[in-house]
């Protein structure tokens, strides 16, 4: 049986602290194809961040495992770049230097110095941040920081891009603009994306599939929903689309009727 590009198989995570053991995830199975945009949605504390961190290699799996492009995930690496919820840019580096750090580390031997510089600029161009190259994170807005975080992740040319509630801390207007940027980038680069969100509209607008998780502890996948909307998607046009409305309703039904927190 041919394996999917990213395959999560029988994954379970149990944290133990002294004699206390808490089972966070149980028997998670998920196949993600190359170029697919998959969202994980669920109530707070359902372990979706844990799942993303296991795929990132930041947390070890207790049972089962993750296979990406034929290789088992057993440690973090730039092929699974993470955009963290709170951007986690290094405050002592400028916008350009933050991306440079990743580019120099990942392509230090593969590209010349000039190529690396251009690659940094290219990725900052993708997120429209070339106007603030020499600014430091404290000098730019939350939305801009998140853009730089996305540029840093894209610059690693990851096999799968992991977004951990990337727009969670932003206001609604900034969030919408960033979602459009992400959709546009994904349509050109065809990234494989795994995104955590708690926003139903965001999940429906951006995803090819929405993975809905049951409440923790011992959370698992409750339901997977295909969003069959043609791309490129326009947030105004899809709002009237029956497929969008149905998808959105199905997620809301799952979250608030069947998994009411």
């Amino acid at each position: 049986m041919p394996k999917a590009y990213l395959s999560i198989e029988g994954l379970g995570v149990t944290f133990s602290k002294g004699a206390q053991r808490s089972e966070v995830l149980r028997d998670i199975n998920l196949q993600v194809e190359r170029g697919e945009f998959v969202s994980l949605i669920g109530h707070s504390g359902c372990g979706k961040s844990t799942l993303l961190n296991v795929v990132a290699g930041l947390i070890p799996a207790t049972t089962g495992g993750v296979i990406l492009d034929g290789q088992e995930v057993d440690q973090p690496g730039p092929d699974r770049a993470v955009v963290f919820q709170n951007h986690s840019l290094l405050p002592w580096l400028s916008v350009r230097e933050n991306v440079d750090l990743a580019v120099n580390k990942v392509f230090g031997s593969a590209k010349s110095a000039a190529e690396r510089r251009d690659w940094t600029l290219h990725n900052l161009e993708l997120v429209q941040m070339t106007h603030a190259l020499n600014k430091r994170p404290a000098e730019i807005s939350g939305g801009m920081k998140q853009r730089v975080g996305i540029a840093r992740a894209l610059a690693m040319q990851p096999k799968v891009l992991l977004l951990d509630e990337p727009f969670g801390a932003l206001d609604a207007l900034t969030r919408a603009r960033l979602q459009d940027t992400v959709m546009q980038i994904q349509s050109t680069l065809k990234n494989t994306v795994l995104m955590i969100t708690h926003d139903v509209d965001e999940a429906t607008l951006l995803s090819d599939r929405i993975v809905m998780m049951t409440n923790g502890p011992r959370a698992s996948i409750g339901q997977v929903l295909e969003v069959s909307l043609a791309r490129p998607r326009d947030r105004l046009a899809v709002a009237e689309n029956p497929a969008y409305i149905r998808g959105r309703a199905a997620v809301i039904e799952f979250l608030y009727a069947r998994q009411a927190a």
């Binding site: 990132a56 290699g57 973090p76 993470v82 986690s88 290094l90 750090l101 580390k105 690693m156």
Partner: peptide, 22 residues
């Protein structure tokens, strides 16, 4: 901050790089 450590882990910085850069 744990976030900086995670950035270093994702980038697979060596211990020396981690020391000087983070």
């Amino acid at each position: 901050p744990v976030d900086y450590v995670n950035v270093a882990r994702v980038l697979r910085l060596s211990p020396i790089e981690y020391f000087f850069k983070i």
